[in-house]
Amino acid sequence: MSDTPDAVMLFAAGFGTRMGALTANRPKPLITVAGKALLDHALDLAEGAKASRVVVNAHYRADQIASHLAGRPVAISRESPDILDTGGGLRAALGLLQSSVIHTLNTDAVWRGPNPLTLLSAAWRPDAMDALLLCLPPAQAIGHAGKGDFALAEDGALTRGGGLIYSGAQIIKASALDGMPEGAFSLNSVWDRLLPKGRLHGCIYPGKWCDVGHPGGISLAEDMLDAPDV
């Protein structure tokens, strides 16, 4: 298989508990921002990156996700009976992705700027990396109140505990999941195995990004999209 990412995994299985009543009867990826479902914002990015295959995982209200995607060239990886978290969900979808190098993208964010997936592809160096994470300085991360996640070295290697925020977009080799436990696990635990080897790298997104994992993020994202160019 190619060392170039040609498949995209969109994470859409979560319960969306931070959204409160907004996700009582629908999954978070179907919440609308600027008249478009969050899932469709993510699908536009996958289409813009010319992905050969797109897979969406689903668990909470999976039938609504399936109905929304009906007729589109998108495969659905249903997680049942249990939700598998990001790492387990990605591993369960590998047969549908059919790729050794994969883009993954969270669906609870909106972007303003260059396509994050094509930006990652341009920075990808498979000889030096097993995963490449797209990060942002806090000033460019709208609606995100948490601490930073990573620091970036001059050679692009990441370490834990710095001020950069992980955006939810990455490239990762399928082989990075080898040896992980069965069932549910987070991609964070995969990254922790790559860190001491120097195989976890990052790059900086030059635009803006808005976290829509909480109700206030909807209006913040719409304001970001409507703001005039500077």
Rank of each mutant, 00 (worst) to 15 (best):
D178G: 10
L22R: 06
A58D: 02
L177E: 01
L97F: 05
Y166S: 13
L94S: 04
D178K: 10
G71I: 00
L69W: 04
H201I: 00
V74W: 03
G95P: 15
L187P: 15
G217R: 03
P116T: 02
L10G: 01
N188E: 09
G156T: 09
L39C: 07
T159C: 14
L136A: 13
T17M: 14
R193S: 01
G162E: 02
L194M: 07
Y60P: 15
A24C: 14
D82S: 13
K147Y: 10
S100N: 12
L152Y: 12
R78V: 11
I142A: 04
L220V: 06
P114D: 03
S2W: 02
D85S: 12
S77E: 00
G156C: 12
C203L: 10
R112A: 04
L45M: 08
F150I: 07
L152F: 14
A93K: 03
V55S: 04
H59I: 08
G48S: 09
S67E: 10
T4H: 14
G163H: 15
R193I: 02
S99G: 10
G162I: 05
F15V: 14
H41M: 04
W191K: 01
V8N: 01
G35W: 09
G16E: 00
R160M: 12
R199G: 11
S52W: 07
P73Y: 05
P29I: 01
K147R: 15
F185G: 05
V230E: 06
R199H: 11
A34Y: 12
A174R: 02
M224E: 00
L97S: 00
A122T: 10
A92G: 11
S100C: 10
Q64C: 11
L69Y: 06
T107M: 01
K28Y: 11
L134V: 05
G162H: 07
S186K: 13
I171T: 04
G14V: 10
V8Q: 01
T23R: 08
A122R: 14
D155Q: 12
G87S: 06
I204T: 11
T23K: 09
Q170L: 14
S189D: 08
A42E: 01
N115L: 02
S77H: 05
G161A: 07
R160E: 08
A139H: 15
L84K: 06
N106C: 13
L177G: 09
A227K: 12
D82C: 13
G162T: 09
N106G: 14
A13C: 11
A51H: 04
P126H: 12
G163M: 13
T104A: 09
A49T: 00
H103K: 07
L134C: 07
A24M: 14
V212K: 06
